[in-house]
Simulated assay, not measured.
Amino acid sequence: MTNCVHCGISFDFYEEGFLFIESNHIHPHMTAAYHMMNDYIAYMPYTSFSTIEDELNRLKHVADLRMGLSRTNKPERLIDLKTFELRFHEKDTVNLIQHGELVSYLQPIVSLQTNEVYGYESLLRTTNSHVSLSPGKLFDVATKTGLHSLLDQRARETAVKARKAKVPAGLKSFINFLPSTIYNPDFCLQHTFKIVEKYQVNPQDLVFEVVETEKIVDVIHLKTVLDRYKKEGMKVALDDVGSGFSTLDMLEMLKPDYVKIDRSYISFCDQDQNKIDFLKEANKRAQALGIVTLAEGIERIEEAQVCKSLGYDLGQGYLFGKPAESPKMTINIG
């Protein structure tokens, strides 16, 4: 259960307070400005972030060092030096991850046979107009600083809230999740299940979508995660099939309810026979397993026509609508 102790737990940077260090190698020459709490923990007051920066430079070679901040002279939480340093240097983004206002933008997913809205994918955004961070940047910093579980939880809750407020019952909500944040599905997913219950959302309207398929290294564990969602009456989707390690063979092993074909096979597929051959094979194998197929990244009418002719069930992309805070209810592609 590596990192479970930090799952969903924030770590705040106060502009003034007390800096704590903990190590088995605390020596008197290190602690001239510190007060000793015991043989392993010392603390000092600070009044600016520059003091913390100075201490990081001074103590960076100390073995087994843990650091933490508190508003009082009692420690709140201590983390390893490397993680502390990463979070400190990204503290503005870290603060946004932990406490910033987040919102879900909704991008329509349509039936290729009828052009009717089938559902929406929820995509994380920040409401702060002065912050230009992309969701990719947020998750990159969250991963580096050990806050990816917290951000993933917040993103899922934001998506469920948006679904309750803006998406009619019966339409599907595709909600991204990072399987690397889920160490024990029975425990780690309780937050999500409680949120679904809190907002009284029908579990059958939810599709939880794996978004880091290029990093799948433990297929058995991922199947356990997907099965746990299914046990609660929810659907699951495999994203970016055809990219990286997310191969067609994964369909047989994981048996998702939906499969989203990587946009690289959709772009200008009308002009590339190799792409058409892959799309045919993917749809054939998915249909044999009873999996709904979704072509993502459709930007041109010709691409939609190819996917429709090949029997794909659903489409997503700028042709049908860009992500927006208010969902697009009808589709008109001419």
Rank of each mutant, 00 (worst) to 15 (best):
V94R: 10
L254I: 09
M250T: 03
I9C: 01
F208E: 02
V219K: 10
N184Q: 14
F193L: 04
D249G: 13
L112V: 11
K91Q: 12
C269L: 13
E325C: 00
S326I: 15
S10Y: 06
G311M: 01
A162D: 02
R156E: 04
Q271V: 04
G321P: 06
L69S: 10
K161Y: 01
P323L: 03
E303G: 06
L171H: 06
Q271D: 15
K215H: 12
S243V: 11
A286L: 02
G146I: 08
T126M: 06
T2F: 12
I195L: 04
K144I: 05
D249F: 08
M253W: 10
L102W: 07
L279E: 13
G297H: 03
Y46D: 04
L81A: 10
A169W: 05
V207G: 08
V160H: 02
T330H: 11
M250P: 04
K215R: 14
V141F: 06
L178I: 12
V141H: 09
T330D: 10
K82P: 00
H221I: 11
Q190F: 05
P135V: 06
V196Y: 11
C307N: 07
L96H: 12
A33K: 15
S129E: 10
L171S: 01
L248S: 01
G233S: 07
D152I: 02
P203R: 11
S111M: 00
Y46R: 06
V259T: 13
T247C: 06
F11R: 05
Q316A: 09
L78R: 00
K91Y: 09
A155W: 03
F320C: 05
Q190S: 14
V236W: 00
I331C: 07
K91T: 04
D218W: 09
L251C: 03
N73M: 05
L19D: 07
F187L: 08
K164L: 13
I21P: 07
R300M: 11
Y14A: 12
M44W: 02
N73P: 05
K231R: 08
S264L: 08
V196S: 10
R285M: 13
H221A: 15
C307W: 00
K230L: 12
H221D: 13
T126P: 03
Q287P: 03
V131A: 02
T143M: 12
L248C: 00
I109N: 09
S326Q: 14
A288I: 02
A33Y: 12
P28I: 10
T72F: 05
P327E: 09
D257C: 05
I216M: 10
Q200C: 07
T31F: 07
F320R: 08
S104C: 00
E302A: 11
I9W: 04
G8A: 12
H99Q: 13
S326P: 00
L86I: 09
S267K: 15
A142G: 06
E22V: 06
V306G: 06
